[in-house]
């Protein structure tokens, strides 16, 4: 583990991605401690341009956009992480079960995975969100998580199948270890790097999904997220009012956060998968 980390630190892509992400997380957690105002309180007139008092101006209700942005990034990252954990866990369990156990279970799980890869998860996301009346950001995160696991499942299955017949696994089998033990000690360590990468990607796509679904007006209630900020900007016609500060910072924040996650993923990929090093 310490060894992998010391290799990772040598990858500039990974380091840049991680630093940007950590700085963002630090900023959005520290700023509300300094500026303890309620992000939903009115501070100025509608669509005031940025000035020395309000760094990013005000939105349609005259609220401080910079403060809203901080809370929005916080919610979006949290939703992304929870969705990432759920999607990776489901994918891992499905992938391990079908790859290691094989046979009938493999057939069924692979069929389910293939079906849910083809049906756009976006559609299922809309259908579930429409059907649930009270959505907190946690509920949104869970819905995103349970609709975006198939990719991880497929990748984990492929890796596990190739590991299943390796000698060290066979030795463990002959030694009479239980299936759980074999999976934990003989399979998991080999796919760990893969799983971490899948988690990073799932988090990024979780943030994007939250933004898309909130943009449609199906996001969590009673909270601010980056997607919700964009939805407000669009519903209250900020672009027509020329209020670029109402949507460009939120848009760039989404891009920067997902970019740093993708960058981390690419950095890891180049290290753990020497075949694609250029």
């Amino acid at each position: 583990m310490t060894n992998s980390i010391s290799i990772l630190i040598k990858s500039p892509k990974f380091v840049i991605g991680a630093v940007v992400l950590l700085l963002t997380i630090a900023l959005v957690n520290i700023y509300p401690l300094i500026n303890t105002k309620d992000p939903l309180s009115m501070e100025a007139l509608a669509f005031q341009p940025p000035d020395s008092k309000l760094i990013l101006g005000s939105d349609n209700f005259g609220r401080d956009l910079f403060l809203e942005l901080m809370y929005g990034i916080k919610t979006s990252i949290r939703v992304g992480l929870i969705a990432g954990v759920i999607a990776t866990t489901i994918g891992l369990i499905f992938g391990l079960a079908s790859g290691y156990i094989g046979g009938f279970i493999d057939d069924i799980l692979t069929a389910i995975t293939n079906i849910f890869i083809v049906i756009p998860s976006f559609i299922i996301l809309i259908l579930i969100s429409v059907s649930i009346n009270s959505r907190s950001s946690l509920v949104t995160a869970i819905i995103i998580g349970i609709t975006s696991w198939p990719w991880t499942a497929r990748a984990v299955r492929a890796q596990t199948t190739s590991l299943r017949n390796r000698d060290h696994v066979n030795i463990a089998k002959i030694s009479g270890h239980s299936t759980t033990r074999i999976i934990i000690y003989e399979i998991l360590p080999y796919i760990a790097s893969y799983v971490v990468m899948a988690f990073v990607l799932q988090t990024a796509s979780g943030i994007l999904s939250e933004a898309s679904i909130s943009m449609l007006g199906l996001g969590p209630y009673n909270t601010i997220s980056l997607g919700i900020l964009m939805n407000w900007a669009l519903v209250f016609e900020a672009p027509v009012a020329g209020a670029w500060w109402a949507f460009i910072p939120a848009a760039l924040s989404i891009a920067i956060i997902t970019f740093s996650l993708y960058l981390m993923n690419t950095g890891m990929d180049e290290i753990f998968n020497p075949k694609i090093r250029s």
Binding site: M230, I254, A255
Partner: peptide
Amino acid sequence: FINSIPFFTLAI
């Protein structure tokens, strides 16, 4: 970077 921008963000 472009890939990390959601479709609609670029559109806006």
